[in-house]
Design a protein around this nucleic acid. Structure first.
Lengths: 209, 209
DNA sequence: CCCGCTCCCTAACGATCGTTCGCTCGAAGT
DNA sequence: ACTTCGAGCGAACGATCGTTAGGGAGCGGG
């Protein structure tokens, strides 16, 4: 996997990127509502009013972080669904790069998960649309694996959400120290996902409920 | 000027419970920061200042929700760890009641997970202390199951967090319509947890990484 | 009858919020 | 030399925030 570039628009202004970087840090540390425009401006050594030359408002800064991150995420991960591999290998590739991307750009990912709800409906919908595209693709692969007898799941959608939640929950508390750390945790969670999908129906061996 | 304590006795006032109930709803709908004291008072058909007769401040309302919920949670689930059952059965019992409790009191659980971070450090620490007690007990059972060869996990703490995240993530998007719904999803996730813990090391059968 | 207590009220405080307005200034274009 | 324009500035706007001071109605016990 190649470098993860923090770009989403055609005009990568230096100052805009600095604002987004600092905003990402403040939003993760204090939350979107608790981090004020004045805090952000002070951290950038500029005046609050100057921010409005680069962004329409506070909500648009949050949107730029969430939408930019999700766009780059889909661009990095979605192609893995169409490589002609089997369901198991596809899941493994996807989850691995899902984790790689999310840990490499952890700040933006945390803002996207925790503060996205503060977006107005029409901006939130754009981000959710990208998320849904990814989730639907994951569901399709699990459904395919289920038909081939590789996975023991009853409900592919629910299984996708379970894997999704397990992985996304990890980003909240795990901090990688180096690249080896990322690869190690990615491998562990790839195994967890496969174990989950394979063994979901096999619990009745020693247990009757 | 003496302080007459209007707060946190063992006797639950009717009005206090109404405040907590409405606050839970508002905090889940809009978030802690976005839901103002005036919104809360209006929903209760009273004046903002009247709230300060029952609570010291906004943060203490949030604390009462989080700490009360977590106290009840531990009281409901922790005894299951000391019933002398084996690791697998204990995990099943615990996760099942974890889900039962969390869906029955979903609003408080969501506030606790999403808005807990807004608490001041000394209040946050009290809630986290209860959470840690539960998590440590879960880790201990997984560790016990690992020693007995029942679970294939490498790191019990990481495995506990994975199960934890999978279950807690579900509360964010799942809404039970009735009690049968709760029992069904609880059974499904109990199976998922067991499948995860059992099969985590078994991925090498058809896959080499 | 009056005291104290609970509960709620009106009114307002100071602080902070996101945002806007009009301006300056230097670099670039022509 | 004149214009344009991006970028930042100081100052202020109206709104809303959490919170407090002080008072009053109802009520039970002395």
């Amino acid at each position: 996997m190649e470098k993860v570039e923090p770009v989403s628009t055609g005009a990568p202004s230096l100052r805009v990127d600095q604002v987004l970087e600092t905003a990402t840090r403040l939003f993760t540390e204090r939350g979107y509502d608790a981090a004020s425009i004045r805090d952000l401006a002070a951290a950038l050594a500029m005046r609050p009013s100057s921010l409005y030359h680069h962004f329409q408002g506070k909500q648009h800064i949050l949107f730029a972080i969430c939408f930019g991150m999700q766009t780059d995420f889909n661009a990095a991960v979605m192609p893995l669904f169409h490589q002609g591999k089997g369901p198991v290998e596809t899941i493994q590739d996807v989850i691995r790069d899902h984790i790689r991307f999310s840990l490499a750009r952890r700040g933006e990912v945390l803002v996207n998960t925790r503060e996205r709800r503060s977006l107005p409906p029409h901006l939130l919908a754009q981000v959710n649309s990208l998320r849904r595209a990814y989730r639907d693709a994951l569901v399709a692969v699990i459904e395919q694996g289920r038909r081939q007898g590789l996975f023991a799941v009853d409900d592919p959608k629910l299984a996708a959400m379970a894997v999704f939640d397990m992985v996304n929950g990890m980003f909240q508390w795990f901090q990688a120290r180096d690249q080896a750390d990322i690869e190690r945790i990615a491998g562990t969670y790839v195994d967890a996902a496969v174990a989950l999908l394979r063994g979901w129906g096999g619990y009745t061996l020693t247990n009757a409920r």
